[in-house]
Amino acid sequence: MASDTPIVLIGDRAEVAPRPRGATAKLRPGRFALTVAALFTFAFLYVPIAVLIAFSFNSARTGATWQGFTLQWYERMLSNPRLIDAAANSLIVAALSTLGSVVIGTLMAIAMERYRFRAQAVWDGLLYMPVIVPEIVMGISLLLFFASIGLERGLITLIISHIAFSMPFVYLTMRARLADFDRSLEEAAQDLGADEWTTFRRVTFPLLLPGIISSALLAFTLSLDDFVTSFFVAGVGSQTLPVYIWGQIRRGITPEINAISTVMLILSIVLVILSQALQRRQSSH
């Protein structure tokens, strides 16, 4: 008993409550340290974001001293036509590229999961590549491509590019879902007299729908968040929101950027809540 260290005792006291069997005694001493480390990391992640939100309501034009609450930066943001245009562009590009990448990626996933054919491993590797290749290479190569075929940069080039980088993510998500899919359900439907198309419509598609929705959310977020690729393939009149924000930041920090950033943050939080709610609904089925 004399060999008891105080840390062990602290760990022990923290662990009086029943715990999952197997969480071993020997990792307990670290529990306190782990908690502290985790709290510091979460603080590191969140303090800059919280400060940014707070300062979007600060009436001071420059500097970081608090000079009173204001909503003027939000008003100014809403009355800025270039910003509204950029936001509209972002939403159009995100919506259309999501639609495209979900359709293309899902079909690809079905093909790769349900069929066995030659050179399949090559295709698998190729589909991984856009995930691995640095964004900057992707953006520049697309810029060179559009320049060499003479396609004017604009919303079309943005949508094409966004489909190109988000389709592999949809593919990977859907392929994982398809791998878990119980094919005897489809066999049961056909056994009960449904043809291939009816089976797809009434059984396969409804069961894949949660996966399709979550991969759509992923594609939508990827598109909204993208800066580097959009920076290269957007035309002068077709800036997306991140490209516009980038330009503003380069010109100097204004409280208006804080306001825009806050709005974008809230949008991300909404998307996270949506996807989490979706996952919970799925797991409850």
Binding site: P48, V51, L52, A64, D225, I245, N258, S268, V272
Partner: peptide, 30 residues
């Protein structure tokens, strides 16, 4: 959930938030 939010938040916005913190006349130095 707390990890997912920064995971899904715009990278540019987050980096900008960090830069804002560390600026010469930013909150930390103030």
């Amino acid at each position: 959930f707390a990890v997912m939010i920064p995971f899904w938040t715009n990278f540019l916005v987050r980096t900008y938030a960090l830069q804002f913190m560390l600026r010469g006349n930013g909150p930390i130095n103030t």
